[in-house]
Simulated scan of single mutants.
Amino acid sequence: MADDNSVGAPLPQDGSARQLPSGSDRGDEKSSGFWSDLFAPVAGFGVSFSTMFRKVATEEYPEKPRPTAPRYHGRHQLNRHPDGLEKCVGCELCAWACPADAILVEGADNDDSPDGAGRFSPGERYGRVYQINYLRCIFCGYCIEACPTRALTMTNFYELADNDRGKLIFTKDQLLAPLQEGMLQPPFPMAEGMNEKDYYRGKVSGPTDGQREYVDARDARIDEEMSQ
């Protein structure tokens, strides 16, 4: 009967007879196998022992939040033009591009008539309702790529955890960028002599005197109505 160690062993290429291992070779193999089995657990613990003496990298969060990359995909923000008008025109392209169906947009028409709601954006429409459900959002950035006016961008803010599911549905007032110095609170007309394309080309650098006068008159009228 053939030796078990020879079963399945390849034949020599030169056609010579296959050489079976001698008794001493078999003994060496058994000896090396014994020592390897004996020290195998110790070798496994070697990885643990080597890490025990390394310096621990402690992150002091939330006292010292870790800085993010410049293009980190964090919480969204609805941006404004330099005079304060909203960049969002309510086109709903961001909602259509969202693969997680996390964005809800309802557009409305800008109304410059005396009895109308006023103008909130340079376009024909503006985003009357804007919501992002961060229970669904996967922060892929497709909505940013789809926005034709660069109204929607992503910030570096990432602390969005909460114990209330309702608080993770952000509304327009939470997403809209705050007014910077010199900006006016919409609604108010576009800058004199400027159209929608001029806004998107960056020709408007701030509010004009006519816009300031309109906002001052509007606020005075509102205060008068509230005092009556």
Rank of each mutant, 00 (worst) to 15 (best):
V47E: 12
A217N: 14
P186R: 09
I103C: 01
A43T: 14
I132D: 04
E145D: 10
A191S: 03
L20M: 12
D209Q: 15
P187C: 08
F188A: 14
Y72T: 00
R150E: 15
F188Y: 10
A191G: 06
R221V: 09
Y199Q: 05
L160W: 06
G206Y: 04
V7Q: 12
G74I: 02
R75K: 14
S50H: 07
A69M: 03
M154K: 02
E224H: 08
S50Y: 07
R136S: 13
A177P: 03
L176C: 04
G27E: 13
K87Y: 09
I132Y: 05
A2P: 11
G127F: 05
A191R: 14
G202M: 04
P41V: 10
E213L: 06
L93Q: 12
A217D: 14
R66S: 06
L176I: 11
H76P: 03
F170Y: 02
R136K: 15
N156F: 03
E106K: 04
K64L: 00
R66L: 00
C143D: 07
L93F: 15
T58A: 11
C140T: 04
Y130R: 11
A220T: 12
M226P: 01
G141D: 11
S6F: 00
S22C: 07
D4V: 00
W96Y: 13
L168E: 05
A40Y: 07
S16V: 06
A57Y: 03
E63T: 05
I222F: 04
E29G: 05
T149K: 10
L168C: 09
G123R: 04
M194W: 13
F45I: 04
L38H: 13
F139E: 05
P67M: 01
V7S: 05
Y142V: 01
K197L: 12
Q174C: 01
R128M: 06
C98D: 09
D83L: 05
K203D: 14
L93P: 00
S227N: 12
V105E: 07
G166T: 11
N110I: 01
S22G: 15
G15F: 00
L175Y: 02
L176R: 08
Y61I: 08
M190R: 03
D4P: 01
L20S: 04
C137E: 09
G84H: 01
A102I: 06
A95S: 15
F157M: 03
K64H: 00
L152T: 05
D112I: 11
T208N: 05
Y72Q: 08
L179F: 13
A146K: 12
E59T: 08
S48M: 13
A161L: 15
D112W: 03
R218N: 02
D4Q: 00
Q19L: 14
T155H: 06
A2S: 13
R201G: 11
N5C: 01
